[in-house]
Amino acid sequence: MEEMTFGTIVAVFEEIFGRGLFWIMVALAAIVTLGYVYVLIRDHSISWRKFLLAQLSMPIGAIAAVWFVLGMTSSSLGDLGGPVDVVVFLGIAAAGAVGIAILVYTIQSLVRPKQ
């Protein structure tokens, strides 16, 4: 690609999901992240009990992310052909795991504030 500027990448993502959906997703991710930072600051510490459930949800997030990407692109695990494929694959799983962990932790903290 000629110019991989920030603007190009945003434009490409807008086309993948549609402009509206993409920015809704960005907003949701930002809200969850802000919510997470908010409960951390509010509670002044991490609740390890809530963190446990968040951790337990991580494999689910990882599998869901991988399943989603494979399904959307008509591909399967057997198509992984080189080291970079494994890196991308693990990256997708990790993103799913971390994403769901933050989501679960934040929801718990907002729904059931500090006990």
Partner: peptide, 11 residues
């Protein structure tokens, strides 16, 4: 590579 396929499919 799978990533090259992903590029064709998604990007």
């Amino acid at each position: 590579l799978w990533i090259s396929w992903l590029m064709k499919e998604v990007a």
